[in-house]
């Protein structure tokens, strides 16, 4: 197990290096960063000074090494727009995004797995047909469009829920959370629903495919023969066996949900990371863009790492082979 961990950690470091190089080339080498940093009517002297200060006159690989050094020290520079350290800016926005993402993924899992297991258990019932119809819509209809329809229906026509913002927040452990107040919850509901629909469709499909496969195995035949009820079989045997692929997808999808939060946050004016990155792309705030990309890459690598470990922990066959 230890060897496996070390091997995976080394892999993660290599991947992180490759990504940092790509991000560096993508954001710094394309276009001229100096045009963004200073206004076009400054004197030639100020221009040269700024170039020297940021090291743009040095060869690209030297710039890259300096960039890496700054990254390792946690120094992402200052945001041009907010005029504060980028790391601080991102950390202040992170809780809002995490709250939204966790609510969406948890909701999708808690609703999707039972629905999917039912669909796999009774493949021909009309309810299953309806469930599968919903998943096609969930896969096909773009997130931003569902968001618009939700706002239209629940905020404009019915007036039940607010159309945007985070609502009242409560400070716990020095971080503001929405889900602890009633008003905050009402603000959280629509964006979380919007973000979760795609994941819900995916969870249903996965749970259904897994259940259909497992129901045909000898394990289930023996469980039936021993007189266990179908409910017990589904809970005790089927759920346990389909949990491995679901945990994998859960982990991987958590990352892509963070990415899709960009769209949902923009529509619902949710003050999280996604809205920050869209705003900084529009205002060409490069330090924020770089920091966001590196952070997302880092999160993805961590998630992949954790999924691998969870895999090993959940599947006794894999555990035995590795030890």
């Amino acid at each position: 197990m230890l060897g496996f961990l070390i091997q995976r950690l080394l892999q993660a470091v290599v991947v992180m290096m490759v990504i940092s190089a790509l991000v560096f080339i993508g954001v710094f080498a394309v276009g001229n960063p100096i045009d963004v940093l200073i206004s076009p009517d400054v004197t030639q002297q100020i221009r040269l000074d700024t170039i020297a200060a940021y090291g743009f006159d040095k060869p690209l690989w030297e710039q890259y090494l300096a960039f890496l050094e700054r990254l390792v020290h946690g120094n992402f520079g200052r945001s041009f727009v907010f005029n504060m350290p980028v790391l601080q800016l991102i950390l202040s926005r992170l809780p809002a995004t995490l709250e939204l993402t966790i609510a969406a993924v948890a909701g999708a899992t808690l609703i999707g797995i039972p629905l999917g297991m039912y669909a796999g258990y009774r493949p021909d019932s009309p309810i299953t047909k309806a469930i599968m119809g919903i998943t096609i819509l969930g896969f096909s209809v773009p997130t931003f469009w569902i968001g618009l329809v939700l706002i239209m229906t629940f905020a404009v026509w019915l007036g039940w829920l607010p159309a945007g913002g985070r609502g009242d927040t409560v400070m716990v452990l020095g971080i503001e959370w929405s889900f602890l107040t009633l008003n905050g919850l009402s603000h959280l509901f629509l964006p979380a629903l919007n973000l979760s629909l795609f994941k819900l469709a995916m969870m249903i499909r996965l749970a259904r495919a897994g259940t259909r496969e497992v129901m045909l195995t000898d394990t289930i035949k023996f469980a039936r023969a021993s007189g266990q009820s179908d409910g017990t079989i589904l809970r005790r045997h089927v759920l346990r066996q389909i949990s491995i692929p679901i945990v994998t997808v859960f982990g991987l999808e958590f990352g892509s949900t963070l990415a899709f939060a960009v769209v949902t946050e923009t529509i619902f004016s949710w003050p999280g990371l996604g809205k920050l990155i869209i705003d900084s792309i529009q205002s060409l705030d490069r330090p924020v863009m770089v920091a966001y990309l590196m952070l997302i890459a880092f999160l993805f690598i961590i998630i992949n790492f954790l999924v691998d470990i969870a895999y090993a922990a959940l599947d006794p066959r894999l555990r035995a082979r590795r030890s």
Binding site: G26, V27, V30, G31, L252, G255, S256, A259, F260, V262, V263, I277, I281, M289, L293, I296, A297, F300, N304
Partner: peptide
């Protein structure tokens, strides 16, 4: 493939 396509497209079209 381990990165969401939407992020990549987002960054590229911004650049």
């Amino acid at each position: 493939l381990s990165f969401p396509a939407i992020l990549l497209a987002l960054v590229l079209s911004a650049l």
